[in-house]
Design a protein around this nucleic acid. Sequence first.
DNA 1: CTATCTATTTATAACGTTATAAATCCCATG
DNA 2: CATGGGATTTATAACGTTATAAATAGATAG
Lengths: 350, 350
Amino acid sequence: MARRSDRPTLRTIAEMTGLAVTTVSRALLDAPQIALETRQRVQRVAREIGYQPDRAARHLRTGRTNVISFVLDPHDELLGFSTSMISGLTRALRDTQYHLVITPHFAEAPTLDPIEYILRNRMADGVVFSRTEPKDPRVKLLMENDFPFVSHGRTDLGIEHAFVDYDNAAFARMAVERLVSKGRRRLALILPPDRFMFRRHLRDGFQEAVERAGVASELPGDINLDSDAADLYAWLTWRLRQPDPPDGMVCAGEVSALSLMAALSDQGLTVGSDFDLVVKQTSLLYDEVRPRIDAVYEDISQAGETLGKLLIRRIAGERPSALQFLQEPVPRFTDRGQGTRTAIGARQSA
Amino acid sequence: MARRSDRPTLRTIAEMTGLAVTTVSRALLDAPQIALETRQRVQRVAREIGYQPDRAARHLRTGRTNVISFVLDPHDELLGFSTSMISGLTRALRDTQYHLVITPHFAEAPTLDPIEYILRNRMADGVVFSRTEPKDPRVKLLMENDFPFVSHGRTDLGIEHAFVDYDNAAFARMAVERLVSKGRRRLALILPPDRFMFRRHLRDGFQEAVERAGVASELPGDINLDSDAADLYAWLTWRLRQPDPPDGMVCAGEVSALSLMAALSDQGLTVGSDFDLVVKQTSLLYDEVRPRIDAVYEDISQAGETLGKLLIRRIAGERPSALQFLQEPVPRFTDRGQGTRTAIGARQSA
DNA sequence: CTATCTATTTATAACGTTATAAATCCCATG
DNA sequence: CATGGGATTTATAACGTTATAAATAGATAG
């Protein structure tokens, strides 16, 4: 309480300059009705005493929270997906008035819960979430409420909305072409669970490239990218003993791919000679994994930064159709050598 | 603006019950001066219309933010360290009034910046940060301002403060004993950079165990846990060609250990027969990595949850000396087999 | 039946900000 | 020298909450 008084407010500045509180407020907001000379004087004083507007008071008065909410998916606990996302978001929000609040989504709860919470309590001015579904109820609800958001992932709702997505179809095509160029003739693709939109993109890209190349393919139904490591391991171990086992595989999950590699290795197969694998890489992990395997990079941190920037523009009123961004896959195939390795490292430390 | 009116406030309830706004406020706070019957009636109405107090208004009036701030370390971008931490924190904050705000710490800026920002602008009621230094200036500043915090990591300031830490000394001892039991006789330890407190704990535990076992040891000075993957790789490659190379190693970083394994593999050494490695594992990664190596588990998500719970108690006024917690290392050595694998998986999905 | 107490409710003000409307000032114009 | 008008400043009120002090009702005692 004693401490409360030492924090400068508009009143402090008003007393120092002999102006009214209202005038000081307008001056700091650079209102043209206030004389230029006055504005400059007030702003100088504010800077000198380190005045920072009180966010709560501002929120109360204006209704704006200056908060961006990120819905933390419970599934992202593995590896750095959310960290990269969050780190990218903070980069986008740097030097803006916006703060980043994490709204958790607990595993057992409906995906809609965190969104309803944000809407009902006016917790934020905008929201970011990931892992969209074709008929994503979150997108629908947010559109109905005309609430600003950018999703990580597209939908199939016939609605124009802001998104950042990775071109998973292009990734799958690229991966298939790579495997075919290495002489693989029976390819498998590990898909995400049914409900996700990016399952379609992956499957469509895969099918297209496989048909064009005229090689055999399969889409295992028992397991998916969210399966337990042990299940993935068990499935591949089993499959390799069946007739016509695949000789190449596309896997869009980093940790899942490790399980597959473990199964291959335990079955006595050597990746690179008996079998090939193309993985989607979102961390620096696969630069260090031996045997080296082909990877295609997805820059999650960059996606986070773009999500943040687009959301701010959306809040400012830009039309959603102008706020859509598709990330291109970046191949990091093994024969490219050391060069590309430093490329990522450099960006991340910058 | 039109929408603003449909959100229930104290006034809504006051009008519905015919009571004064003040009475409703006190009733919801369960003040004993309000008749029990009135309290119950008000609380029932509030529940029915889904009343939620406005955080900004409350903040403005009481000075409390109901916000916990987590300082996001720029170094945690790799793997899931921060995600696990954040996920644990959200678990601790669930069903409380507290929200989690991410305060970024950008790589080039002093560690003190985010703390000063929080203090100056009264951004939160408490703060969590990681990677403490022996004379950590953040701890000093927060203590001086009597501001609630819990650090992930201890300090050497001679001050009692709340912390959650991992027993890195015990980890190092455990790792050395494991390596010695496998017949290794020249051990190396990869240390964190000089400035961190946990460097001491690791080194002390390592030295103690090495001396007790009477084996040779070395502490490489050119590289550390924050070194680039390429530098770690280059160093070990070089070292293996020098006289008296180590035959066992302790590494407290997951990704760093992968670089070391890559170097070993590229030098034709097989982990498990020519060389042994004990790694500190904070994700499920090493369950899937081949060849299997010995790991000791650190549950970051659990640490996050504990940090959150202790911080809430600290804010409530408990003495710091009662809010200190040391996590015990959990060995996950290779000969334990499949059993322990499921143990972690089970906890994380629960 | 009045005075006094206790239990309960309420009015007032304030947190720091900004939108709206009103007030002041200064200068040019008739 | 009044008048009008533009430029600039200010008073008032409100956002939703809660702390403080004051008011009311009801009950008890004298």
